[in-house]
């Protein structure tokens, strides 16, 4: 697979809320090849601490060779990236991994949890090229309203139906995103695409399985290279016999192919 290492200029920064940021960089080669569900490995500068790049799903690509990432500051690596100003550069490696599989299902459910919404916006844009908006349903879960309202608006502005759940009840239905899934009845063939924290993915995979819906999950692990060289991002196979690697075999997997522990 073709990957590029680019010094990408930061062209815009947006503080979505609290510790969640959305950065747009100019990385034309990556933007041209990127597919929904693929990721990039980012390094803020030349420093040796933190040492490793940080993986991010591609949030969306735009005209002019632009690539956008949506991320939450959780440690030194993301702190350094969040500190970049417009006009400065980040070193971006990508596009990497296998994204969401295009398919001929009649209905598409995009299920995101918190920052896991990131790759679903890119996916929604792609799906809209071949599907009516009514065939796409967006279900978003978060802890509280501030974490999700801006992101929910992005999907609504595309003409998509969006349902939201928050754990504190400050927006949409109080509870978890799976609480939005359970009441849904559908006789059509459904594909669920999901990204978010591991316990949520496990629950979404479980509900999908119960309902007979196909499900693709985007997994996140600690990662060193992103290229299939270090083998650090191992995840147990569904048959418990050996491992798949999130960077190369994923990050998107059929939910039936990985073990849910």
């Amino acid at each position: 697979m073709q990957a590029y290492q680019q010094k990408a200029e930061v062209v815009s920064t947006e503080k979505v809320t609290g510790d969640i940021y959305r950065f747009t960089v100019k990385a034309p080669d990556i933007a041209a090849d990127a597919r929904p569900g693929q990721f990039v490995m980012v390094r803020a500068g030349d420093g040796l601490d933190p040492l490793l790049r940080r993986p991010f799903s591609i949030h969306q690509v735009a005209e002019g060779g632009l690539v956008q990432i949506l991320f939450k500051v959780i440690g030194k690596g993301t702190q350094a990236i969040a500190g970049l100003q417009v006009g400065q550069h980040m070193d971006v490696l990508g596009p990497l991994g296998r994204g969401f599989v295009h398919n001929t299902m009649q209905e598409h459910y995009l299920v995101g949890g918190g920052i896991g919404v990131a790759p679903l916006l890119f996916l929604a844009k792609q799906l809209l090229k071949k599907n009516e908006p009514s065939a796409i349903r967006v279900l978003l879960g978060a802890g509280t309203k501030a974490e999700i309202s801006t992101l929910a608006d992005d999907f609504e502005n595309m003409g998509l139906g969006v349902q939201v759940s928050t754990e504190d009840g400050s927006l949409g239905k109080p509870g978890l995103v799976t609480d939005l899934m359970v009441p849904l009845q559908n006789e059509n063939k459904v594909m669920v695409y999901t990204c978010g924290p591991y316990p949520m993915l496990r629950a979404v995979a479980g509900v999908s399985s119960d309902k007979g819906w196909a499900c693709q999950v985007s997994l996140e692990t600690i990662m060193a290279c992103g290229l299939g060289a270090c083998l650090g991002c191992a995840v147990l196979r569904a048959d418990m016999n050996g491992y798949v690697h999130v960077c190369k075999d994923g990050p998107v997997f059929d939910a039936d192919d990985v073990a849910w522990l």
């Binding site: 040492l51 692990t221 600690i222 060193a224 270090c230 650090g232 191992a234 491992y243």
Partner: peptide, 19 residues
């Protein structure tokens, strides 16, 4: 097959691996 995850951890100016 290698060892179970987590297999890597970042440390100051370095990383630990048990692949």
């Amino acid at each position: 097959q290698g060892t179970p995850p987590p297999r890597i951890a970042e440390t100051a100016c370095g990383m630990l691996n048990a692949i």
